[in-house]
Design a binder for these strands. Structure first.
Lengths: 127, 127
DNA sequence: CAACAACCTGGAGTGCACTCCAGGTCAAGC
DNA sequence: GCTTGACCTGGAGTGCACTCCAGGTTGTTG
């Protein structure tokens, strides 16, 4: 790991969220032990960057703030909680897969609807 | 199409939403011309059922109420708007595909994280 | 040294999509 | 004839995840 530290603006840019969101996550205990510069400004390290990327990945795929907080709490409780964290990840992975399957079914229905538009000659029933 | 009419409770059950949600959609002009029984209670027909299924499919995949309202307005304006409605469906389809790709990338990251848990012997950097 | 940019804090506000509620109607069953 | 259940209306409330704001500090820049 390099020892390059990121400012809030740089981190926001790197992970694609606002600075406010970063602070919000910290308030919600999803990010801990963020370093500070002499003037009190936050300085994020490479570990923070990696974690926030994972955090965003989990959020983007529907894990709630509450669940993420729980995951973080487990992390803070040490190695004994690894199995539970692993279970959370696996469960979440399964949910994401299930979601993909839902999207596939939706695409089929949308395609069907598109086909109807394409082959419709009359019949005004659309609503 | 059969002429069997559904009560609000039956419709809610058939499409997997609450009766309140059904009424909400109607207020937002996403469902129009719902029939009524003599006592003023709603009676949904087969066309309503088909449309509400499509509506739910689009909502479930991220189309907003505003966009759906626009789609409905187009429908009410007649055949001249068919190309625009088709474009909306195709654009939305593309978004759903894009979302699927995002989920795939997320799954890769989750798998990577799971691997780290599995191959971790020491190294306490987690949070 | 004044202005400006980047950040700080605690707390209030926002947008979306529902979800719930009070008060009322109507038809069927005991 | 009274209760029960399903439904009606307009409007208020909820939960989530941010997002914004006021008021303040610090450090650089012309």
């Amino acid at each position: 790991m390099t020892d390059h530290l990121l400012t809030p603006a740089e981190m926001a840019d790197a992970v694609g969220v606002s600075i406010d969101t970063l602070r919000y996550y910290e308030r919600e205990n999803l990010i801990s032990d963020v370093g500070r510069a002499a003037n009190g400004h936050r300085r994020y390290d490479a570990g923070d960057l990696a974690w926030i990327r994972v955090l965003r990945c989990l959020r983007d795929t529907g894990m709630t703030i509450d669940q993420l907080r729980h995951y973080c709490e487990l992390g803070e409780q040490g190695d004994a909680t690894k199995p539970e964290r692993l279970t959370m990840l696996r469960d979440h992975r399964a949910k994401v897969e299930a979601r993909k399957a839902e999207l596939d079914r939706a695409i089929e229905l949308i395609d069907h609807k598109i086909d109807i538009y394409l082959h419709e000659d009359d019949e005004g029933a659309t609503s």
